[in-house]
C-alpha cells in the first residue's frame, strides 16, 4: 500500500480494496452463509430500514484509547493508515489539539460525508425508483441520493456533498463530490479539502447487516486514495423510531444564547458583535 503514488486511479484503488476485504480490512464482513437478499420491485437489494453503526469512529476513525466519555476502539480505516501529505498531518494534529472548540460537528454544523454515516445515532434508508433517501436522527439531516443518472451540479459546494447513486451488481454505489472544506471525518481532527471525492459502497451481507465502505480521495490533502469500512447494523427493535437530536437548537437554548446573555450582563456586549 505504501508504494502507491498519487496517480493511482480510483478504479484501481477500488479493485485492490475489494481484494483486501478478504483478509486485511478492519471489518471482514462477508455474506452470511445461505443468505438470500430481499429485493425491491426493481430487483435491487432492499436497503430499507433503520441502521446504525456500533463503533466509536465518531471519536476517531483510527485506533484510539479511551478518554473520559469516549469509548476506545480499533480503526475503521484500512490498516489504520491515513496517507496525509506532510503539511496535512501537521494540520490534523493542530485540529486534534483544538478539537473541543473547533470540531465542526461538535458545533452542530453539518457532519459531512462519510461522518454522518457513523455517528452514534440511527438513520433510516428508503428506496424509491428515483433516489435512495437517508434520514438522520442527528440534526434532522437528509441525504437524497439520486439514481436517475442526473449529473452532478457544477460549481455549487455542499457540506454534505452532491451525491449520485448507481448499482454495481448488488452493491449500491454513491459518488459524492462538490464538498466544502468545512467538515471533518471525526472528532480527532481528521480532515479534507473541498476537493474531497467520496465513493461509498453499501452491500447487504445478512438480514440485519450492511457492509459499508467509503473510499476517500483528495489530492490536496492525501498522497493516495484510502478506505474505511464498517458494518451497519439494523435496529431490530419492533418499535425502533428515529427521534430527534436537534443539535443546533439545543446549543441555542442551552448554550449559545445564555453565553450571549452572560456576556451582556458582564458589560461585554461588544464581544457578541462579532
Amino acid at each position: 500500500m505504501m508504494s502507491r503514488g498519487t496517480a493511482l486511479t480510483l478504479a484501481a484503488a477500488l479493485a485492490v480494496g475489494a481484494v483486501m476485504i478478504g483478509g486485511n480490512g478492519p471489518t471482514t464482513l462477508t455474506a452470511q452463509q445461505g443468505y438470500q437478499v430481499s429485493r425491491t420491485p426493481e430487483g435491487h437489494p432492499d436497503l430499507e430500514g433503520i441502521w446504525q453503526v456500533i463503533n466509536s469512529a465518531e471519536a476517531n476513525i483510527q485506533d484510539h484509547g479511551a478518554e473520559l466519555g469516549v469509548a476506545p476502539g480499533r480503526a475503521v480505516v484500512e490498516n489504520n493508515e491515513i496517507p496525509y501529505q506532510p503539511w496535512a498531518l501537521e494540520q490534523q494534529q493542530k485540529n486534534n489539539a483544538n478539537r473541543a472548540t473547533t470540531d465542526p460537528a461538535r458545533n452542530c454544523g453539518y457532519p459531512g460525508v462519510p461522518r454522518i454515516m457513523y455517528q452514534p445515532f440511527p438513520f433510516k434508508i428508503v428506496q424509491t425508483q428515483d433516489f435512495v433517501g437517508m434520514y438522520f436522527e442527528f440534526g434532522h439531516h437528509i441525504r437524497f441520493i439520486h439514481t436517475t443518472g442526473m449529473p452532478h451540479h457544477e460549481g455549487i459546494p455542499f457540506w454534505m456533498g452532491d451525491s449520485r447513486g448507481s448499482w454495481d451488481g448488488d452493491t449500491f454505489v454513491i459518488d459524492s463530490k462538490n464538498f466544502t472544506e468545512n467538515t471533518w471525518f471525526d472528532r480527532a481532527g481528521n480532515f479534507h479539502s473541498e476537493e474531497l471525492h467520496v465513493v461509498e459502497r453499501l452491500t447487504r451481507t445478512g438480514q440485519d447487516h450492511i457492509r459499508y465502505e467509503a473510499t476517500i480521495e483528495d489530492p490536496k490533502v492525501f498522497t493516495r486514495p484510502w478506505k474505511m469500512s464498517m458494518p451497519l447494523y439494523r435496529r431490530v427493535e419492533a418499535d425502533a423510531q428515529l427521534m430527534e437530536y436537534e443539535c443546533f437548537a439545543m446549543q441555542v437554548f442551552d448554550g449559545l444564547w445564555e453565553d450571549l446573555e452572560k456576556i451582556a450582563e458582564e458589560g461585554g456586549i461588544e464581544g457578541a458583535n462579532q
Binding site: 465542526p104 458545533n107 452542530c108 454544523g109 453539518y110 428515483d130 433516489f131 437524497f144 439520486h146 436517475t148 442526473m150 451540479h153 455549487i156 455542499f158 457540506w159 454534505m160 452532491d162 468545512n182 443546533f248 441555542v252 449559545l256 444564547w257 450571549l260 457578541a272 458583535n273 462579532q274
Partner: peptide
C-alpha cells in the same frame, strides 16, 4: 423536471450563528 432542488442546503451553522448574534 429534476429532483435536485431538494439537495440545496438551506442554512449553515455559521450563517445561523451570525443571525443569532
Amino acid at each position: 423536471e429534476g429532483l435536485s432542488r431538494m439537495d440545496l442546503e438551506d442554512t449553515t451553522v455559521e450563517y445561523c450563528d451570525s443571525e443569532i448574534h
